[in-house]
């Protein structure tokens, strides 16, 4: 025994040797790595883009799931529709997207526990039906809860649809639980490449209320083309959805049209070469 209180009641070093702290965390002189849940995404989807127009929202994402730079799965549909008012576009980790898809399915079952009290035609005008804004609030809280548990869902989401007053709604949520909203939205590469294009067409909320459905669809299709030109994790087949008061129209096998490659013919060398 010595006069240091820390040593009282402990095995004596001179008899048992130095205490072996290796199992302790690094902060306490050990070598143990901290427990961590935070992973990195493995199978991933790239950008999601969307535009609000007069009476609804258009949203699109391509059908590729990459494995690093390997284009591993080419039939992955990343737009998930929820009731007849919303579509969620998912970028980032595909396994977490599937988790969210199942979460939405169970939410849908719970939301319909009282379908005993609604006929199909009644629920079309059901004021209690979840709007896209409600869904966005729900999802952003799921995302924030998971980041606060240091176990984030590695995704960037766009929620597009109609709110409970049937006005167009568009907002994002990401792996940190951060949210934004606006008349045009894009995740991932789309935020750099598509957002500037969409903003030229729809600079503000007022402009989106003037925009027609066809123009909005065309703008999104044009952006998907630019993304295919410049995003190395993209493919030319994509899904596109339009949500308006008529419901959700989801197409999952669209192919990019009117690509521009002919000008490659005029390119010679990398500077002065002409042949």
């Amino acid at each position: 025994m010595n006069h240091f209180p820390q040593a009282w009641g402990r095995p004596r070093d001179d008899v048992y040797g130095q205490y072996n702290p290796s199992y302790l965390p690094q902060s306490h002189g050990g070598t143990q790595q901290p427990i961590t849940h935070t992973q990195s995404p493995i199978v991933t989807g790239t950008s999601v883009i969307a535009i609000k127009f007069k009476t609804g929202v258009v949203i699109a994402a391509d059908n590729l799931a990459s494995y690093g730079s390997l284009a591993r799965f080419t039939d992955v549909h990343r737009l998930k529709h929820f009731n007849r008012k919303s579509v969620v576009g998912v970028g980032g980790d595909v396994s977490d997207m599937q988790y969210l898809d199942r979460l939405l399915k169970s939410l849908d079952v719970e939301e319909n526990y009282s379908t005993g009290s609604h006929t199909a035609e009644e629920s079309e005008t059901d004021p209690a039906m979840m709007g896209a804004n409600n869904l966005h609030t729900y999802l952003s809280k799921v995302m924030y809860k998971r980041r606060s548990d240091f176990n984030p869902l590695w995704n960037a989401l766009l929620v597009a649809g109609l709110d409970e007053k049937n006005k167009p709604f568009l907002a994002s949520a990401d792996l940190l639980g951060t949210t934004f909203s606006g008349p045009t939205m894009a995740t991932g590469f789309g935020a750099h490449l598509a957002q500037p294009i969409m903003r030229r067409i729809v600079p503000d909320e007022a402009a989106s209320q003037q925009l027609g459905r066809e123009e909005a669809v065309q703008a999104v299709r044009d952006c998907m083309k630019v993304l295919f030109y410049r995003d190395a994790r993209s493919m030319p087949e994509y899904s596109i959805a339009v949500i308006d008061e008529k419901g959700v129209e989801l197409k999952e096998k669209e192919v990019l049209e009117n690509q521009s490659w002919d000008f490659a013919d005029k390119i010679r060398g990398y500077g002065t070469q002409t042949v």
């Binding site: 609604h118 006929t119 035609e121």
Partner: peptide, 12 residues
């Protein structure tokens, strides 16, 4: 069919 495999109230 009319309810698409779902449990619903019979239409009015």
């Amino acid at each position: 069919g009319p309810t698409k495999g779902r449990h619903e109230e019979v239409p009015k």
